[in-house]
Amino acid sequence: MLQLNTDKIIFTGPVGAGKTTAISSISDTPPVSTDVNTSGEERKLKDSTTVAMDYSYIEMDDGTKVHLYGTPGQTRFDFMWKILTKGGLGLVLLINNDHPEPVKQMEFYLDSFSDFIDETGVVIGVTRTSINDQANIEDYQAKLFERNQIFPVFEVDSRSEGDIKVLIQALLAILAN
């Protein structure tokens, strides 16, 4: 049962932000995904999307595991978010810069996960910055500043192991200090 795994990091963000890919970049095995074909507006973003969760893990040298969960991107599955975050270590929020209003998307997810963030910590990865530069990192930081929040915000390519490790490294630094 997924609630029983407490050593877990949650990846969240809107459809097409790269959650499944990011998990694949650092996990030991390809994520188990519950994808279905998209329709309507979502079809413009990607062919299939995660409706329940993605799951994979990283196994430590002593055999223990850190579990990686990706939340469904569509808000109609938001009932899953609370279940997945229960007992989690921290949150990785991925934002698709190609979205018409990416900074608003960030605010939406920060608000939706505010309790979990207050208890743990969050790092924000902005993807697809090379495709669309309508918002830059300073715009995200300015919004955070306006909200009196200081969270790490990095430009990332979710396919890059190095970029996703930077996110994890920042999350670990926040959680440990």
């Binding site: 200081i150 790490p152 990095f154 430009e155 930077v166 490294q169 920042a170 630094a173």
Partner: peptide, 26 residues
């Protein structure tokens, strides 16, 4: 105090900088 985190994914960094940023951000 830091007013925001440096953009480590595109700027150079050393591992200790994450710890410094985490402490100086709060």
């Amino acid at each position: 105090k830091l007013t925001s985190w440096p953009n480590f994914s595109r700027h150079g960094f050393k591992p200790d900088y994450f710890k410094l940023a985490a402490i100086m951000a709060k």
